[in-house]
Design a protein around this nucleic acid. Sequence first.
DNA 1: GTCTATACATTGATAGAC
DNA 2: GTCTATCAATGTATAGAC
Lengths: 193, 193
Amino acid sequence: MSSKNQSREKILEAATQLFHLQGYHATGLSQILKVSGAPKGSLYYHFPEGKEQLALEAIERFGSIVSAEIRKHLNEVDDPIEAYEKHILHISRKFEDVSTLPNNSETLPIGLLAAETALVNENLRIKCEGVFNDWDSIHKEKIMASGFSDEQAQSISITINALIEGGITLCLTTKSNKPLLEIIKMIPLLFTK
Amino acid sequence: MSSKNQSREKILEAATQLFHLQGYHATGLSQILKVSGAPKGSLYYHFPEGKEQLALEAIERFGSIVSAEIRKHLNEVDDPIEAYEKHILHISRKFEDVSTLPNNSETLPIGLLAAETALVNENLRIKCEGVFNDWDSIHKEKIMASGFSDEQAQSISITINALIEGGITLCLTTKSNKPLLEIIKMIPLLFTK
DNA sequence: GTCTATACATTGATAGAC
DNA sequence: GTCTATCAATGTATAGAC
C-alpha cells in the first residue's frame, strides 16, 4: 500500500469510529486527526471536500463491515431463529463492559448518524438510507430462504432492523447489555408461521 | 403567568423541539433564541448553567409529554395488542409528510439525544435513562394487566420500546412511515402466550 | 504528501450597563 | 429581566512553503 493510502486509511478509520460513537456534529476534524495519528497537514489532501466527504466514506465503509458481519453470522446457522439469536447475542457482547466500547466499534449501528443527519443533511441521509437497505436485503434473503413469503419477510426484516437499532440505543443509554438480551427472548415469536 | 416565566417557557419550548429534532450538538443557543422569539439577553438569566441545564430540562419535559401520550393511548383500549397497534399507528402518522415534522415534535423519541450523549455527557445520559425507565414502567403495567408475568412483561416492554425507537430512526432515515407500519404487523406476535 | 499559518465563522459563556 | 459587548475556544476550510 502506498504511503498516500496509509494516511488516508488511518484518517478514514478514525473518522469511522468517532462518527458513529459520538455522532457527526460532536466529532471535530481536529479530533479525527489526533486519534488517527495521521500527518496533520494531510486531511484536505486526501479528502478535498472535507468533513462531509469523510462522513460519506465512513458510512459506506461502516455499512460494508457490518454487512459482512451480518452475512457471516446468518450463514453459520440454518435456522433463522437460532441465527438471529446468535447474531444479536454477538452484538450484545459489546455492551458487557461499556468502558471498552470505543475499541469495539466494528458492529455498532448507524442509527445515531442516521437520526442526526436525517433532517439536516440530505447527502448523508441518503447514504444512511442505502446502508439500511443493504442490511434489509440480507435479512430478507435469509428469512425467505426458510419459507416465508416476500411480504412476510419484509415485515420481519424491517422489524429486526428496528429492534437491533433501538436495542443498541437502549444499551448505550443504560450502559448495559440487558436490553438486547431481553430482545433476544422475543425473536422466536417473530418467526411464527 | 409572570413575564419571567413567559420567556423561560418560550426558550424551553424551542429548545425541547430543536434538541430532539436535530440533536444536542447540532443545536446552537443562538438558534434556540431565534426560534423561541424570546429576548436575546435572557437565556443565561433563566438558565444560569447554560446549554446543559437547558437540555436536562428539555429532556424532562419531553419525557413527561410522551409519558402522558403513551398513557392516553394505552388507556383507550383494553386489549394490549390493539392498544399498541393504535399507539404506533399514531406515531407513524407524523412521518406521512416529513416536511411538516418540525411542527409535529410532540411524540418523537429521545433516541437521538440518548445515543448522542451516552458516551459523552454523563448527566444527560442519566436523564435519558430515567425517561426510558418511566416509559418502560408504563408499558409493563399495561402488559401485566392483561395477564403476563413480571418477567414476560419486562421482555415485551423493552422490546416495544426498542421497536418504537428503532422504527422511528428508520422512518426518519427513509423519510417514510412505512417502517412503523410494517412493525405494527408484528405486534400481535409479541403477545403470544 | 505533508506542514504551518491563517482566515473566518460560530460556538458557549461572562461582565456590566440599563 | 434584558441588552450589548466581548471573551476564549473550537469549528471548518484555504493558501502557500517545503
